[in-house]
Design a protein around this nucleic acid. Structure first.
Lengths: 243, 243
DNA sequence: TATGATTGTCTATATCAATAGACAAATATG
DNA sequence: CATATTTGTCTATTGATATAGACAATCATA
């Protein structure tokens, strides 16, 4: 926004309140406001819409936990900044957010042993019919869900890895039980899209929210693939850092 | 989609036709359909909406150049895949998409000489009051805009860089005239958000589209910062590849 | 304690999005 | 050529978004 009145587009398929919510969220992220939002009437004039439309946007952001409204006082900013999540050859989830969040944990949502699909066969260097362990996991920082991952491990080499993950909440720790003391990230593909229904629910986002998806393969020191995975980050909360 | 009926959410602030358009676009990107979309009636049943709602989604994608509808025959896929854009220590825009696109060019949209803002001062190691050259550029592959960048160069060291860029369409080439024969990317921050109005227009996207933003600093072999930049990629067209 | 500023709630109306059905126009196929 | 399939266009109706105005409730402050 920054003086420049945030513009909104009509009959674009995105309701005005949602466009305004997105712009306010972004403005907060780039440090536009100190601790308090301007009054609803001021925002309404700035966007050229009715006060009630702005209220719609604000109530969505209150739902999201970004804002807190207090009658008579104003609307206050609850959460300002995004977390920076590092990506590189030695990316480990559990070490990623050190210093930025006090409490970090991984939660096992579901697991299955199943035949690998074509993409996983290629990524993990398996052969048709080989089984993989699939883990559906959620990662939280300070009690707030940050990311949602689907991971595949070669079933023959890592039987029962789901139990080890469930106990420790960490892939790195679980792999140690299989004598994998070190591993590397071979490559990462990054894309962005609207969150799926399931991800919306798990990450506690509102419809229309964006996720950053990373697809990657981890290999052991002998270059043998050990994990093929897609992680979806809530784009409002996280940015990736490549160095 | 893939058998799983693509689900849509009502009264979410995103119209159904837009949600469906996003899902179809994504399905195409992941190779769901060969060359032709299923008939409108089939899609309508799959999404649980009226045929006219599907038609709204299709007409948006026709507008975008993703689909082409032919009366009596069906709806055909015009453009299928996303481009993979590599990111790393030696990222150069002009070399990024080699082999994936025949024709690549950078276009100078605007330029200015102005005092550096706080963020740029820090990134480029300047002091308060120093001037920078700002370049607003657009990058096209095979005639289709794929990214939009805002770049800052130290004004004292690179006077007139805008002319050199305008001529060559390449930062790497422009820098050579200043005896910068090699440079490195210090770090990259990646985030995703809804495209701004201006980016929507420049990248020829429809409202609600997502951009992947990369913020980075390039340094010369002596570790002196030479460029601070934000590039916005159309998330429908591009994915980033970190290796 | 009176006043102004601000958020919260209600009612009414207008505009846009989505559904429903019917039929025309173009194409593919037996 | 006759028929089925598929996209294109029209009308009517319902439901969700957005606007408008009025006033209540809460808080800060002079």
């Amino acid at each position: 926004m920054a003086g420049v009145a945030g513009r909104v587009e009509r009959r674009s398929g995105i309701s005005l309140w949602r466009q305004i919510a997105d712009q306010i969220r972004q403005a907060i992220g780039s440090g536009e406001f100190d601790e308090k939002l301007p009054p609803e009437m001021t925002l309404a004039e700035r966007f050229g819409v009715n006060r009630h439309t702005v209220r719609g946007a604000i109530s969505a952001l209150v739902q999201e936990g970004v804002l807190r409204a207090e009658q008579g006082r104003g609307t206050f900013i609850e959460r300002k900044q995004r977390l920076a999540y590092p990506i590189g050859a030695r990316t480990r989830f559990s070490e990623g957010l050190q210093g930025q969040a006090k409490d970090r944990r991984g939660i096992l949502l579901a697991h299955a042993i199943e035949p690998a699909d074509q993409r996983t066969i290629v990524a993990l260097g398996l052969t048709e019919g080989d089984k993989v362990v699939r883990l559906e996991t959620l990662s939280e920082a300070d009690g707030r869900p940050i990311s949602r991952a689907t991971s595949f491990f070669p079933g023959e080499r890592f039987p029962g890895i789901e139990k080890l993950y469930a106990q420790s909440g960490s892939v790195t720790t679980a792999l140690k039980s299989f004598d994998v003391v070190d591993y590397f990230r071979r490559s990462t593909l990054i894309s962005a899209r609207h969150a799926s229904d399931a991800d919306l629910a798990d990450l506690r986002l509102s419809p229309g929210a964006i996720v950053i998806a990373t697809v990657y393969t981890n290999v052991d020191p002998d270059e043998r693939p050990i994990q093929f995975s897609e992680t979806r980050f809530a784009a409002d909360l996280v940015e990736l850092s490549v160095s």
